[in-house]
């Protein structure tokens, strides 16, 4: 699937409008996700980039109704039905019917008391109503599809007997067992070694193509997104600040935060004399500033930035930015 997907997606698979995630306690109220808009096209891999605290993982969890205790989501969430029409859905009830999730840490996300074959078969049993024997055959097929060697034997293994890469493959097989049309990936390769990470990225990419499955891939690692995503949305302080086709984003970033992120991490194929970090810290989600939330760390800040709307502007040629200054920023491609 190398076709570029236009931002003005005619018939998206998933549409998220004005998503807010709020955590309330007796005295405080925090809204770490504060107005996120996203669309995912059928078959598209959308990358969601950002640093810790940007709200990227919470956005993903809110889509599937898996928020941590105390969190509540508000917003318009729609998922395409069988006829392709977007229908509002209840995040708490959507699990297993069209969406599933792959987590970062395969050791803690897999049930340690179940043989991996049984665990994978469970999805087919519950969501597709298969008999146990059929589901087991299906599980072995899925294990073969995700590249687990000798799946018949491996199906009898316990999670602790597997290496990190195999565990992550088991988790992907588990996620596939409900035949999802959208796979939500929360840093699925961050805990893996480079050579294994590469294998898992290739696997996910192949699965997306073969199954015509969409993906939202959350990570802080831009090179990983450069290699897997069709389109990338960059999050900062609770909102999307820039969205663009992946190659275009790296060629010509339009938001100073994207630009800074690109130039602050050392990158293996770009040798820069000195790294440019980002001064300061992201704003406190309890007291987000009124205007641009990146303004006090931005090296391109100008008059008016503190009152500028902190929202993605108009999407032109599949690209949008929350920066009101029309800057000519240097990319890395």
């Amino acid at each position: 699937m190398t076709t570029k997907v236009d931002q003005t997606i005619s018939s998206p698979l998933l549409s998220v409008r004005d998503l807010h995630v709020t955590f309330r306690s007796k005295h405080t109220e925090v809204t770490p996700v504060d107005g996120v808009d996203l669309e995912v096209a059928p078959g598209e891999i959308l990358g969601l980039a950002g640093e810790s605290g940007s709200g990227k993982s919470l956005t993903l969890r809110a889509i599937l109704g898996l928020l941590p205790r105390g969190g509540s989501a508000k917003g318009d969430l729609r998922f395409a039905g069988d006829n392709g029409e977007l229908v509002p859905y209840d995040p708490a009830a959507v699990r297993g019917s069209g969406m599933s999730m792959v987590f970062q840490e395969p050791m803690t996300a897999l049930n340690p008391t179940m043989r991996v074959g049984d665990l994978i078969a469970l999805g087919a049993q519950i969501h597709q109503g298969m008999s146990k024997a059929d589901a087991m055959t299906e599980a072995v097929d899925l294990m073969r599809e995700v590249g687990i060697p000798v799946p018949e034997r491996r199906a009898r293994s316990w999670p602790h007997e597997l290496s990190g890469g195999l565990r992550q493959r088991v988790m992907i097989a588990t996620a596939l067992s409900t035949k999802p049309r959208l796979l939500l990936c929360d840093e699925p390769t961050t805990a893996l070694d480079v050579t294994v990470q590469r294998q898992i990225l290739s696997l996910l990419r192949r699965l997306a193509e073969e199954r015509q499955m969409s993906m939202i891939f959350v990570t802080h690692d831009l090179p990983v997104l450069a290699s897997i995503a069709d389109r990338i949305a960059v999050m900062y302080a609770g909102r999307v600040v820039e969205i663009n086709d992946s190659r275009e984003l790296f060629r010509r970033p339009k938001h100073p935060y994207t630009h800074a992120l690109m130039h602050s991490a050392p990158v293996i194929d770009v040798t820069e004399e000195r790294l440019v970090g980002i001064e300061g810290r992201p704003p406190d989600p309890r007291r987000f500033p009124v205007g641009c939330r990146f303004a006090d760390r931005c090296s391109f800040v100008a008059d008016g930035c503190e009152d500028a709307p902190y929202r993605l502007g108009e999407i032109v040629d599949s690209s949008g930015t929350a920066c009101v200054r029309e800057l000519d920023l240097k990319g890395v491609r």
Binding site: V194, R198, Q199, P223, A226, S227, I268, D269, V270
Partner: peptide, 20 residues
């Protein structure tokens, strides 16, 4: 080195190295 994700390169289909 071939496995490391790069900003300037797309993912190719071949995996440089198999197994763990």
């Amino acid at each position: 080195l071939a496995s490391a994700p790069r900003l300037k390169r797309d993912l190719t289909d071949e995996t440089p190295i198999i197994g763990e």
